[in-house]
Design a protein around this nucleic acid. Structure first.
Lengths: 448, 448
DNA sequence: CGAGCATGGTCAAAGGTCAA
DNA sequence: TTTGACCTTTGACCATGCTC
């Protein structure tokens, strides 16, 4: 067992030269496995230790560092003490040496990442507070010279999540604290999706080439990568706000569902599917895509107004033009159950894009072949993971889990509204009070 | 996941082990062994210490603390004893286990601050002195596994004072000598829900008292806590498998939706709502509750058969008896989109119960008052957090996130099927080909 | 009453975080 | 990408007070 230091020694040490007393518990230090750094062969037998006896086998550096460590033990750094490396104000003894925050962090990072630096001059660069970042080779060398001890560096600790206060008291369980996994793959996925989201925005304002049915649209090359070749469509851009007409509704429905198909074709996993499975996914999702984009990208004019990109708007109690007899109104529900929650949850564009991808790859889509189900489920999992990482990296696990959960549970409301819409479309067909566009019909109507 | 220590082990160990041994058997246990398995076989019951007799009149906490004290009295930690958690040098017996300072402090802090950790991997991280800080979830789990006892944690040091004297003088005030161990909030939520789930199972086989409409059912005391007073209903128990008739369907629909109301009334947050908001939540969820329980508790007879508790079953291509003209069949969808995914995802009963609670508290339920929305959303968040913790504790983050996500996205399919069902009910009303029970109608039919 | 030990508390120095 | 001010977590050490 290690002996504890007697207090008198401590105070003596603080004032003057270190007396040969104890050593900090080397046994409790992590055994760093760094090349070129040898560990003490035996972790101190027992009983009392003295510097002289135990340091007989040490090289100069080790002796030096143990002295510093002893000094550091239980003793605050004196007021005004300077960093032994750069002469900035020291914040304490770090790795055995009075040093500043910067040099402390620099030393750890260098060791942990096993970096090697090369001096651009002659290896004799000055290291002080003002130019300490100029030469990393010489800064690191200085760290070692003044006795910073790589053995004092521990293994990776568990992640702790955001340190900046989340301000909002998420009433209840702020108790949770946990890891935030950062995965590169997830990040890449999100970046891709966000990029495609941008392309969709461009395509939204282009003249879309005519197609003859959904199948043909699925066959053509993806338009999203050719937006520059397409003509600009002036009817899609904002000029003024005005109450939407049924023509606006129709135009945007068709346009958005065309974009949905182009968007779907950007997924490799989608392109690998058989045409019937592609059709199944698209038919399952197209109107949702339409709906989600409409409300997400609607400029915020309060909770009672959905605004299209060209300025046409729909009110909570909608104008006569967009009402059809026999159809239940779904605009208030779009506002209450999708638009407002999106805003309340503060969904970012990246989150929105990733959410759509997870929604799109639905293994339970109607008529999806058994064979495709697995691939689709796997693809969904990819986007679910990416979405989770995206959200929790910003908010931390406790709050992130709730946002992630709330967002995913919105799918229930969304699907419910979609069902309502389908019912409406059937009413339209039945009473012929509005001619449904053939393209839209093909995508939205249930086969009976 | 969390392991509780079984009391007998301590007594047995304390009294039974040879004098020179103490407790090192714990430390030398293989790290993977479960406490219930490895601790129980303590050879000799209590010996000369007569712990059992002296503790017969004490409550659990006192029993424990006195045992610790006796233990401490008699036996110092042997020289060179290792920490049962991380194999560092032990500094003594802490919370019943030979352990180092670090693990001791870590355990106390975790309990006191009610923290929950989530493993970044699969919950099987190694814990030793070099990497003990790498995964806090696994370190804490190891603490519990080797038998650290949360009940030994006091939170007011000064009140531990005259334990013995108080116990002798006045019985009663000694209960707060040591604070009741603080259980993890999420875990408590899940345990509660699972308990209620069990009560629902009982109620499912009882004769339910007649009620006059949903409002009345909401007013009455919750039946779930009075199942013992209710008569057993023999028509609800299994006798043989047989094709379900429309009467089976009807009986179970009514029954399950009655249970839904009783179930809802077990939530404090629900009881705090105004009656109209209660009605809104119940109307929004009752059929979902019905549907979910039906498929979740259906005995597994393959992917093409839903089996009721009394043995009545419905096939994928259902028997004539349960088909109604004009109604779209929703049984295959129930199987494909709910029953099979539940089984594939390996949803446990605890997960199922927590999922239902999160689903129930829907801030977007139709007609929910603005005032209630916030409370309902907050309540949902509670269950979402609990569900996440439940899942990731077992599976770790990467896999858990996907299971959590997939489960929540099932709400879309479920809601879609519910919408289909509502449509069917409207058809039934319209064509009068089946008389919908008034109770069911009140809960399921959209007001127009 | 003092010896012995397991409690909780303390705080310097570890590591993590994230805006710049 | 790197930096470093600022944050949380850790654990050696300390004081306390129970039990014998």
């Amino acid at each position: 067992m290690l002996t504890t230091l007697s207090q008198p020694c401590f105070f003596g040490m603080n004032g003057g030269l270190p007396a040969g007393t104890g050593l900090p518990s080397i046994a409790s230090m992590p055994s760093g496995s760094l090349p070129g750094v040898s560990l003490l062969p035996s972790p101190i037998p027992s009983g009392h230790l003295s510097v002289s006896s135990s340091s007989s086998g040490m090289n100069g550096q080790q002796k030096f560092s143990s002295v510093y460590k002893r000094m550091a033990q239980r003793r605050k750094v004196p007021e005004g003490e300077l960093c032994a490396v750069c002469s900035d104000l020291a914040t304490g003894y770090h790795y055995g040496v009075a040093s500043c925050n910067g040099c402390k962090t620099f030393f750890r990072r260098t060791i942990v990442s096993e970096q090697t630096f090369i001096c651009q001059y002659d290896g004799k660069c000055d290291v002080n507070k003002n130019i300490r970042c100029a030469c990393r080779h010489c800064r690191f060398n200085k760290c070692l010279q003044v006795g910073m001890d790589a053995k004092a560096i521990q293994n990776d600790r568990d992640r702790i999540g955001p340190t900046r206060k989340a301000a909002k008291g998420s009433s209840g369980s702020d108790s949770d604290n946990a890891v935030t996994p950062i995965r590169n793959q997830d990040q890449e996925i999100v970046e891709n999706l966000t990029h495609v989201e941008g392309l969709c925005k461009e395509l939204r304002h282009c003249v879309l080439p005519e197609v003859n049915g959904v199948n043909q649209a699925l066959m053509f090359d993806c338009l999203l990568f050719r937006t520059k070749e397409l003509k600009h469509d002036p009817t899609t851009v904002f000029k003024e706000f005005y109450p939407a007409s049924m023509n606006d509704v129709r135009m945007w429905n068709i346009r958005e569902m065309r974009i949905c198909i182009e968007w779907g074709k950007t997924f490799e996993a989608f392109m690998r599917l058989a045409i019937n499975d592609q059709l199944s996914l698209v038919r399952n999702f197209a109107f949702t895509f339409n709906l989600l984009n409409r409300v997400f990208y609607s400029p915020d004019h309060g909770p009672d107004k959905i605004v299209y990109q060209n300025g046409a708007f729909i009110l909570r109690e909608p104008q006569q033009q967009v009402q059809l007899s026999g159809c239940r109104l779904i605009y208030p529900r779009q506002m209450d159950e999708i638009m407002i929650p999106f805003r309340k949850l503060n969904i970012t564009e990246a989150e929105f894009a990733t959410f759509k991808a997870a929604f799109f790859f639905n293994p339970d889509a109607l008529d999806l072949s058994q064979k495709a189900k697995e691939d689709v489920a796997e693809e969904r999992n990819k986007y679910l993971s990416a979405l989770f990482t995206l959200i929790t990296n910003k908010l931390g696990i406790p709050v992130g889990v709730q946002k992630y959960g709330s967002l995913l549970m919105m799918t229930a409301s969304i699907q419910n509204i979609i069902a309502q819409n389908e019912e409406n479309m059937q009413v339209m067909e039945l009473f012929k009070n509005w001619e449904v566009d053939p393209f839209v019909r093909e995508l939205c109507m249930k086969r009976t």
